[in-house]
Every structure is written in structure tokens, then in C-alpha cells.
Design a protein around this nucleic acid. Structure first.
Lengths: 332, 332
DNA sequence: ATGTTAGCTGTAAGCGCTGTCAAATCCGAA
DNA sequence: TTCGGATTTGACAGCGCTTACAGCTAACAT
């Protein structure tokens, strides 16, 4: 089922059918109707591969995320998708599961698909890959990794500032022993986030911190918290989690051990995902404006696609502290 | 950057480069090495569109879901994705947000992409679309909608049985006034799920039920519960939710009204999503084996793609009741 | 020396669509 | 009736890749 069959049926040339499909240039109304009828009758669906091959462009943008299961990523994706649709673009996603080997595959896949733009919302990133991307002249937006370059926009959250707000608050409430729950992607090279926490803690000589990491899931948060609580040391009075999902996992572990939140232990999340208001107790967290991030991504990718305005830059977002019910004064 | 350039650089023909790329047929080792070197140096990435155009096949399977934000869908998707990757297939997803107009777009998109197989995990489905799909000879798996047909496998959960288990249990605990929280996709044509609840309730003359619906989100669950509790009627002693996510929303509304769960009101979910164990109190729910569903989907789609074994059928899954902490005896 | 095989590699015909350019058609004006 | 320009259409050359099929080279048998 292809253009030619439709053309034959409508007794026109393939060029005309193509024109009707893309309602480009002027087609006489009577022919248009005839062609549309043929399309309808034949239930014709243009082959998108052929289309982008011939047209040389794809009107598709690629989004790569570390873990779609975490609503943080999903929220960004969702915004990108709806903006993209509004602009007549399609979106294809890929998950890396924090595996850099998957990242490589995904990026190659996107290049192979000749996407019009690519957003990478991942914590891992290989500089060599960035070069490949650059060679392919495809506009890219990175979130949280890599520096801006020609054709690359970089969005980052001032994570340090966010963590500082959390630690300042906890300190002001009299907490001394903190626990940090991170996820596996943060192991290996001394991770930025972990380091940030260490730095923030270091500014208060009275504070000490222990940490544990596991998968970036509810269960992972629970397991990391468990190991934090059973490594022999004194129980922390506050647990700072790398994100809300893991914090909800922490909440459960604490509950099962009979520790009350926030009377016995305070817990903080990060991201201000919707779930953080719905769990019990509602999480004190740090708001990351995921929708704005999505909008910025789309704006940069699509604008750059349409007019080659290559004003690349770095966009830094300052996160906001959100006080809810999972934190309180240190016990005793 | 295309085959020809690589070929030129490696001083071979494009056919040979193609052979190397697909490591098909026998290429002399020395040539292979030369070609690979050229590919490497040129950072060549084959154009996937051209590839599938020329090859006539796509090794991509499409998945359409109603609401990726609900982990129920995500879990299925995730399983499909990993099985597909293991078999050397790619997966592209599309969200309908329960809008049938989006469903149409998504299906057309998938046909346009000439996917090798399509899974529709949606609650809405237009029979006319099914015909289109059928005409395109692409293997399809439906979840919860449509009947099996040539080339179409249908997976369905015995939702009725699940709801009966919930209602039986609630009745046995002395509940009389039930509330049902559904989502918007269920409005309009008297919905199967709603009807199921009504039927189950009808088998116990002493039971009565009121219902409310909102979006399929945490917030939607909260709002629907709110309207259930403020429509003037007596407060239900148990709230049956169409899924876990909405149940977690219900939990919040109840909490904010000072109603204790399960002492004052019992709440049940559906799906047994991971979150149902992590919320407080942990949800009594009905387990739907999402992973099995994902495996079945992939198995059917990919097997059918490879060998045209068209033994189509309907697969029915019997869900299991999971008792946790959000339900108890009716008050008083 | 010639014929045969086997092993590699090149040639070229599409895959289904777009976009350019030229041809055909149509319209009112002369 | 004829002509010029505007309006519609058709022919065709690619887009980058796969895949017969044909061609070439070496090695071996006759």
C-alpha cells in the first residue's frame, strides 16, 4: 500500500498525492477530494521512514532519561511531549536505567533515527559521545551533565544550594547525626551529589553524616535506609534522601522499625514529586520545577531546529525548599 | 555521512560496507577490518529510516498505553521493553491520556512507522481502527479491549472476579455502604468496570454503593473521594478504588478529614502496584501480574513476527486478592 | 593450458516518498 | 478565436540502504 497505488486509484500522479498528504502548494479542490477519497478507501498510511528519508528531516525529538519509573523524569518527559506535539513533533524516549552502556545504545539509536533534537536527562554522560553528537550537528540539551558547547544547551539545577537549604534547616532544628540515602548511579567517581552533602555538612562542625545507596526505587530507598540503621552506628536523627521516591522507601523502613517520623527521625526528599504530598507523613523536600525544565528543553530544541539560532548557553535553576510534615526538631 | 562515504574511505563498495554492518554473508577478514576502521573514524551511524525502507522490516514494536504516569502501565511497558531488547527489537511508546483521539493518532503513527508488532494497553478502542490494523497485517495484542481475531491476541484480566473478591471480603467485614472511586475514562458508555462493581454489589441486597470519578492520578483519587464524602449522603464505610494510585489519593483525603483508615473507613486499591505496599496504611488490593502480561505480549508479538504462526487466542488472567492494612471491620 | 570451484566483492535495481522543473490546462482579455 | 499568465499537474531524480545477481580472483583438478 503506497503512494503509487493511491495515485493510480485517484488517477493522478504520486506527486499530487504527496501534495495532498502534506497539504502543501495548491491542489485543485476537485482533485484533492478525489485523492482523499482514494486514501480513505485504501486505508493508506504513509510510510514514515520513506518520508523522512526523502525529506531529509524527521520532526521527531529524542528524550533519554535515566529512570522513567521515577516520576521526576516522567514529569519532564510529559511536558516535553506535550510541547512537542503542539509544535507538530513526535517524541521518542529511551531509558538507560543508569547504565552507561544503555546510554551509548540509546544515543546511537537516536542518531540513527536522525532526530531533529535530543534531550538527555541522565546522570551519566560520556564526553566521547558528546563529540559524536556534535559531529552530527544535532541540537542537544543536557540536564545536569556536561558543559554548554556549540549546539549544546545545558540546564542544571543548583543542587548544592538545595542541599544547603535542607542541611541548614536540619541543623537549625538541632539535628546532629544525619544519614544520606543515595542511589547506585552515584557510586564510583566521587559523586557530585554525595559530595555536595558532605560539603554542606562540613560547614557545621557539629554535624556528622553516614550514607548508604541502593537502586533508585521505593524498594531501594527502603533497603538503603535499612543498611543505614543497622550498620552498628547510632541511629541518625534525620535522613536526607537524594529524591522523593527513595524518601518514601525510607519512610516505610522507619515505620516498620517502629520509629516515628518526625518525632524520632526526620526525613527529607528532593524533587517535590506529586507523591511527596500524598505519602504519610507528607515529605519536606526541595522543589525542582520539572515543567519549566520540560518547556525549556522543547523551546531550545524546536526553536533551534526551525531557525538555526545557535545561542547556546547554560541555564541554572535555583530550587526551593518545601517544608512539610516529615521533619521536625531533633529528639530529646 | 553515509554508506558511500564509508565505502569510499575503505575503498570498497557500499554493498560490502552494508555486509559488514549487518555482519551478514562472508566478508574477508582484512576487508572487514578496513571497513570497521573507516566506520569508526568517520563516526558513521547508519540511517535507520533508510535501513527499514530498504529492508522492508523494522524490528520495532509499538506499545500504546492510556497513562504512563500510572505505574501499572509502566510496569507492563518495562517488561515488554526488556524482553524486546533481548530479542533485538526496539520499542516505541505512545500515551493516549485516555483520549480516543490520541489513540487514533498513535495507532496511525505506529502504522506509519511500520512496526513489526503493536500492543495496545488502553481502555478505549475503536473497532474501525482495529480493521485498519488488520488490513496492515501487523500482529496486535490488546489488553482488556476487543475480541481476538485473526492476527489479534487479546489478553484480559477477569476484572469481575477481582472485584467480587473485594466486595465479598468487605461484606464479610460488615460493610454496608460502599463508595466507588473510578476515573474519567469510565464515564460515558456504562463502563465495564463500574458495571462490574454494581453487579457485585447487587448480589448482596444489604449493600449500597455510590460512586465518583476523576482523573487517573493521585490528585484525581483525592478529588473523587472528596466528592464522595461531601455529596450529602452518609459516609461510606469502605471505599473501593479502581486502582492503587487513586486509592492513595483517597487515603490522603481521608487523612485530611480526620478519618482513620481502616478504623473509620476501609480503602481498597487494584493492581498491586509497588506503591501500594509503601503507602500508609499499606493497601488491600488485587494483584494483576503485570510482568506476565508483558512477557505474553512480547512473546506473541515477536514470535509472530519471526515465524508466521498465527494461532490467535484470548488469554484470561485471574487476579488474586491481597490483604493488607487499609481495610478492617466496618465501624460500630 | 583449460575448466571448475569457491570465496569475495561490485553493480544496480529498487524500497516509498519529496521536491524541482517543465508541461499541460485553464481563464479572461484582446 | 487566439494569446499570455496563472494555476495545476506530471515526470523524474534522488534520499541512504539492502539485496539479488553478476563478476572477478585464486586455487585446484583435469
Amino acid at each position: 500500500m503506497n503512494l503509487e497505488q493511491v495515485a493510480r486509484r485517484a488517477k493522478v500522479s504520486t506527486a499530487t498525492v504527496s501534495r495532498v498528504m502534506n497539504n502543501a502548494s495548491v491542489v485543485k479542490n476537485s482533485t484533492r477530494v478525489r485523492v482523499m477519497k482514494a486514501i480513505e478507501e485504501l486505508k493508506y498510511h504513509p510510510n514514515l521512514h520513506a518520508r523522512s528519508l526523502a525529506g531529509g528531516k524527521s520532526r521527531t525529538i529524542g528524550v533519554i532519561v535515566s529512570n522513567m519509573e521515577n516520576p521526576f523524569f516522567f514529569d519532564i518527559y510529559k511536558t516535553v511531549e506535550s510541547d512537542a506535539h503542539a509544535a507538530g513533533f513526535e517524541v521518542v524516549v529511551a531509558n538507560t536505567d543508569y547504565r552507561s552502556e544503555q546510554l551509548v545504545n540509546s544515543i546511537r539509536l537516536m542518531i540513527g533515527r536522525r532526530v531533529a533534537g535530543l534531550a538527555a536527562i541522565t546522570s551519566e554522560m560520556d564526553p566521547a559521545l558528546i563529540d559524536e553528537l556534535n559531529d552530527n550537528r544535532i541540537p542537544v540539551v543536557f540536564y545536569d551533565v556536561g558543559a554548554p558547547r556549540p549546539n549544546i544547551t545545558s540546564i542544571r539545577v543548583n543542587y548544592r544550594r538545595g542541599i544547603e537549604k535542607v542541611v541548614d534547616y536540619l541543623h537549625s532544628m538541632g539535628h546532629q547525626r544525619l544519614g544520606f540515602v543515595g542511589h547506585h548511579a552515584m557510586l564510583g567517581p566521587i559523586n557530585e551529589r554525595m559530595k555536595t552533602v558532605l560539603d554542606a555538612v562540613a560547614s557545621y562542625p557539629s554535624l556528622e553524616v553516614r550514607s548508604a545507596a541502593d537502586a533508585d526505587t521505593l524498594e531501594g530507598g527502603r533497603l538503603a535506609t535499612r543498611s543505614l540503621l543497622s550498620d552498628g552506628g547510632p541511629t541518625p536523627t534525620a535522613i536526607v534522601c537524594v529524591n522523593d521516591i527513595m524518601a518514601v522507601g525510607a519512610l516505610r523502613e522507619l515505620r516498620e522499625r517502629g520509629l516515628r517520623v518526625p518525632q524520632d527521625v526526620s526525613v527529607t526528599g528532593f524533587d517535590n514529586v506529586k507523591l511527596s504530598e500524598f505519602c504519610y507523613p507528607a515529605l519536606t523536600t526541595v522543589h525542582i520545577p520539572r515543567e519549566s525544565i520540560g518547556h525549556i528543553i522543547c523551546e531550545r530544541l524546536i526553536r533551534k531546529t526551525e531557525q538555526t539560532t545557535a545561542a547556546d548557553k547554560e541555564i541554572v535553576i535555583d530550587p526551593e525548599f518545601v517544608l512539610r510534615d516529615s521533619t521536625g526538631p531533633a529528639p530529646r
